[in-house]
Design a protein around this nucleic acid. Structure first.
Lengths: 192, 192
DNA sequence: TACGATACGGAACTATGATTCCGTTTGTCA
DNA sequence: TGACAAACGGAATCATAGTTCCGTATCGTA
């Protein structure tokens, strides 16, 4: 499933190639510097001029939105795959969280997006977030049925807890162990 | 206890008055807009000119550091008061967390500081954070002795969990309930 | 009150970084 | 292969916001 914003008309071969180079380059740059990365950097790392970046993405925000959208799409893939898995429902759900956050760990821009920095990126990824929420709900429902997840825990808690763990990842001082934070968050969802 | 950076020589009466006005004004402005507040705004709200703001604080970062330092000092006061309180140690500790975060809830700049945005503010408040850590340790030790806090929980988990709750507070979309996040975090520290 | 030291205000300066513009180059198609 | 649309590069532009500067005003003291 691909919800990305494709250009209206067919792209020329070089343009298609450049578009990919830009997305790859932008991923690298934004992953390291987060939203404070500069468009000049994106252009340099991608091996194109700034003008070319702007030909493909009207604003920096639009470019970031596309990148985040793709990562959120991966979340969905991971969660969907978990729906078919056999095993203890709570553990399956916890593993989805672990996989998704592992994916986020190397990408400062995605961390910031999850933390809700930048209204445009947040709103621009609404469809992906909604879908992710639906799948979460199913996985959580199973854990409730199994009696292994605390009664009052719901799908709406998940983005909030992920947001918290992302904050630990992004902390300037490298003093926080986000794996630890995540395990505490998971434990807080267990039935007591 | 006041660790603040006082000016070296005695201030003239008007200067002393302005210094207070600036700190009050800056608190309001940074509380609402966080680090992205502008020095011009601070000056206007404080009722002084920008030049005057810079006479008292050499940089925006320095001003923010002073504000955050003061809030952290309040944390310490609250925690210290808890040392003398009678009752179940875990609950006493949890209440310190609740009080401190309530204090933070209205102040975006402090939230960002706890989340480690801005290296200078982080480093500039090291003494306060260390002190807070020491008092935390004592409260936690008591809860361990009482057997109500999980064995592997330590003082180093606290700033991390607070950081997570602050991320919920600061989220663009008002969709997260930080009180809920905090209670989950507290529960994750309870002995199982 | 008069004077020198302090402090004030805010216009001007500067740096940074997003975005635009346009002359040049390249792909596509007849 | 020639023509033209599509795409490119990057210098120039524009906006924002932190910081500096300096002429003026005020405080404290003799």
């Amino acid at each position: 499933m691909d919800t990305s914003t494709e250009p209206k008309h067919a792209l020329r071969a070089d343009a298609r190639r450049n578009r990919e180079k830009i997305i790859e380059g932008a991923r690298k740059v934004f992953a390291i510097k987060g939203a404070s990365a500069q468009m000049e950097d994106v252009a340099r790392v991608s091996g194109v001029g700034v003008g070319t970046v702007y030909r493909h993405f009207p604003t920096k925000e639009a470019l970031m939105t596309e990148l985040v959208r793709r990562t959120f799409a991966s979340f969905i893939d991971i969660a969907r795959a978990a729906l078919d898995r056999e095993g203890e429902p709570f553990d399956i759900f916890a593993d989805v969280l672990r996989s998704n956050l592992e994916l986020v760990a190397g990408d400062a821009a995605v961390q910031q997006a999850i933390m809700g920095a930048g209204a445009e990126v947040w709103e621009g990824t609404e469809p992906e977030r909604r879908q992710m929420g639906e799948i979460s709900s199913q996985l959580i429902e199973r854990a409730h049925a199994a009696g292994t997840m605390r009664r009052d825990a719901g799908a709406e808690d998940i983005p909030m807890l992920m947001c918290g763990v992302c904050a630990s990842m992004g902390h300037t001082a490298k003093m926080f162990d986000w794996h630890r934070h995540l395990e505490l968050a998971i434990d807080s969802l267990r039935v007591r």
